[in-house]
């Protein structure tokens, strides 16, 4: 088990180095820090001196080494648009994205588990068929269209809910939160529904499929034979064993949700990391772009590694295979 964890962490480190390498090559090819720093009036000699001073004449790999060692210490470059270190910019935008992802995952969890279980237990009932039918339509609708429809119906036509921005936020220990004001919560409703709409069908189908498989197994038949109540068989014996695959897939999908935040945030003008990323692309803010790449890359790698390790801890077959 220990070897398995170590191996996973080494792999994660290698992947991070590769991401850093990609990020650095982009920076190396696209950005010219000297041009960003000085105006037009600075002479060629002075520019050369500055280049030498900044170490831009060193070899590619020397510079890459410096990039990595800076990144490890939390220095991901300087955004010349925001006039702030890139990491600070990203961290100031992160709470918005994290809250959006958090509320959406809660929605997904609270809706998909009961719906998935119900349609597995009673596959022939009307509601189950409806859930299955709606879920294939749901998978086919791109998240930005769901978002647009929600805005059109609830913001433009009915004027019930605001359509853009985060609304009022309160500062709690340096964390700008929209979860504790009525206005902030109202602003969260539409974006989080839109974001969860893409994953909800997947989870309902997954839970249903797993649950149906578990209900066919011998030990469930044994549980029925023992004369346990239906509730106990379904919720304690069967549901527990559907959770394992759901957790693995859930972890990976959590990463994928981050990709979809870019779309959701664009539609709702949500001031999070994804919105910032697209603005950085428009402004050709290379430093910020690369910093986003590294931060999101790290997020994916950490989530995947943790999921793998947790899975390894929970599921004994993985441990045996890794010996």
């Amino acid at each position: 088990m220990f070897a398995f964890i170590v191996r996973r962490i080494i792999q994660a480190t290698v992947v991070m180095l590769v991401i850093g390498f990609i990020g650095f090559s982009v920076k190396h090819q696209l950005g010219d820090p000297v041009r960003d720093l000085v105006g037009i009036s600075v002479s060629v000699e002075e520019r050369e001196a500055l280049r030498e001073q900044l170490g831009l004449n060193d070899s590619f790999f020397e510079q890459y080494g410096r990039f990595v060692s800076n990144a490890v210490r939390g220095d991901l470059g300087y955004s010349y648009f925001f006039k702030k270190p890139a990491l600070d910019v990203i961290l100031s935008k992160a709470p918005a994205t994290i809250e959006l992802v958090f509320v959406s995952s809660m929605l997904i969890l609270l809706l998909s588990v009961p719906m998935g279980l119900y349609s597995a237990i009673y596959p022939k009932r009307f509601f189950s068929r409806l859930a299955m039918g709606v879920s294939i339509v749901g998978v086919s609708i791109p998240v930005f269209l769901t978002a647009i429809v929600l805005i059109y119906v609830f913001a433009v036509q009915l004027h019930w809910l605001p359509s853009y921005g985060r609304g009022d936020t309160v500062n709690i220990l340096g964390w700008e939160s929209g979860l504790f004001t009525i206005d902030g919560l109202r602003h969260l409703v539409l974006p989080s529904i839109a974001l969860s709409s893409i994953m909800l069908p997947l989870f309902i189908r997954l839970i249903r499929a797993e649950m149906m498989e578990v209900l066919e197994t011998e030990y469930i038949k044994y549980a029925w034979a023992k004369g346990l109540t239906r509730k106990r068989v379904w919720l304690v014996h069967a549901f527990k064993n559907t959770l394992l695959p759901v957790i693995t897939v859930g972890g990976v999908q959590l990463g994928i949700l981050i990709a979809f935040t870019i779309l959701t945030e664009t539609v709702f003008q949500w001031q999070g990391m994804g919105f910032m990323f697209l603005e950085a692309v428009e402004r050709s803010d290379t430093a910020l772009l690369v910093a986003y790449l590294v931060v999101v890359g790290a997020l994916f790698v950490v989530v995947n590694t943790v999921v793998d390790i947790v899975y390894g801890l929970v599921n004994p077959t993985v441990t045996i295979a890794s010996r």
Binding site: L30, A259, F277, L278
Partner: peptide, 26 residues
Amino acid sequence: MRIADVQLSFSTLMVAIIVSAIVQVA
């Protein structure tokens, strides 16, 4: 397969968005 696994873990949409963003800036 390690490469495939790693790339899949990043969500194909994310990879596409980042690659196209970099290409557009370039």
